[in-house]
Amino acid sequence: MRTWRDGEGTLTVGGDAGARRVPLRIAASYRTRTQGLLGQDGIEGALLLTPAGSVHTFRMRFAIDVAYLDRKFTVLAVRTMKPGRLGLPRLRSRHVVEAEAGAMERWGLRPGVRVELRAAGTSWGRPAL
């Protein structure tokens, strides 16, 4: 099993020809996961919370899209959450990706899509074919 660390990376959605690469912040420590996007007015790209099976938007300043990923980086569900909401836990979810509302639809991120995560020169997962 991979040990995640806080840092920067890239989220890749789609196959080689139509791949969409998105800047990614990785929140793996307890402290950075609990901070998440609190206190921010927006985000360029996306935030990966790992491990995570659910999220909340209490004290958030903007609506977000939330994608729940399984251990093979397949999207289980995508939800848009307004501030002040509590998301239901996803049983097989191991990772959560957050972005500004509407971003995931533009990227083509939807249930069943497999994504690739790249950090510090290493990649995990496979792009969808």
Score class of each variant (00 low, 15 high):
Met1Leu: 07
Arg2Tyr: 04
Arg2Asp: 00
Asp6Ile: 05
Asp6Leu: 05
Glu8Ala: 13
Gly9Asn: 04
Leu11Ala: 00
Thr12Pro: 05
Thr12Lys: 08
Val13Gln: 00
Gly14Asp: 03
Gly14Lys: 02
Gly15Phe: 06
Ala17Asn: 11
Gly18Pro: 05
Ala19Ile: 10
Arg20Asp: 04
Arg21Cys: 08
Arg21His: 04
Val22Met: 00
Leu24Cys: 01
Leu24Lys: 02
Arg25Tyr: 07
Arg25Leu: 12
Ile26Leu: 12
Ile26Ser: 05
Ala27His: 14
Ala27Gly: 10
Ala28Ile: 13
Ser29Ile: 14
Arg31Pro: 00
Arg33Ala: 10
Arg33Asn: 13
Arg33Ile: 13
Gly36Ile: 15
Gly36Cys: 11
Leu38Asp: 03
Leu38Met: 09
Leu38Asn: 12
Gln40Tyr: 12
Gln40Asp: 07
Asp41Gly: 05
Asp41Ala: 12
Asp41Glu: 12
Gly42Trp: 02
Gly42Lys: 01
Ile43Met: 06
Gly45Tyr: 01
Ala46Ile: 04
Ala46Pro: 02
Ala46Phe: 02
Leu47His: 10
Leu47Arg: 03
Leu49Gly: 07
Thr50His: 11
Ala52Thr: 09
Ala52Gly: 10
Gly53Met: 13
Gly53Leu: 10
Val55Leu: 09
Val55Lys: 09
Thr57Tyr: 11
Thr57Ile: 05
Phe58Met: 07
Arg59Thr: 12
Arg59Tyr: 14
Met60Arg: 11
Arg61Pro: 06
Ala63Phe: 02
Ala63Gly: 14
Ile64Asp: 06
Ile64Cys: 02
Ala67Pro: 11
Ala67Leu: 04
Tyr68Asp: 11
Leu69Asn: 02
Lys72Leu: 08
Phe73Trp: 15
Thr74Phe: 04
Thr74Gly: 03
Thr74Ser: 08
Thr74Lys: 11
Leu76Met: 07
Leu76Trp: 02
Leu76Ala: 06
Leu76Glu: 14
Ala77Phe: 03
Val78Leu: 02
Arg79Glu: 15
Met81Gly: 05
Met81Asn: 07
Lys82Val: 06
Pro83Asn: 09
Pro83Glu: 07
Gly84Lys: 05
Gly84Glu: 06
Arg85Met: 12
Leu86Arg: 15
Leu86Gly: 04
Leu86Phe: 08
Leu86Pro: 02
Gly87Val: 09
Gly87Ile: 07
Pro89Ile: 11
Pro89Thr: 13
Pro89Leu: 05
Arg90Asn: 07
Leu91Thr: 12
Arg92Pro: 09
Val96Gln: 08
Val97Ala: 01
Ala99Gly: 01
Ala99Gln: 04
Ala99His: 04
Ala101His: 10
Ala103Cys: 03
Met104Gly: 00
Met104Arg: 10
Met104Asn: 04
Glu105Val: 09
Glu105Gly: 13
Arg106Gln: 14
Gly108Ala: 08
Leu109Met: 15
Leu109Asp: 02
Leu109His: 00
Arg110Asn: 05
Pro111Met: 03
Val113Ser: 05
Arg114Trp: 01
Val115Gln: 00
Glu116Cys: 09
Glu116Phe: 03
Glu116Asn: 04
Leu117Asp: 03
Ala119Glu: 12
Ala120Val: 10
Gly121Lys: 13
Gly121Ile: 10
Gly121Met: 06
Thr122Pro: 02
Ser123Asp: 10
Trp124His: 07
Arg126Gln: 10
Pro127Asp: 01
Ala128Lys: 08
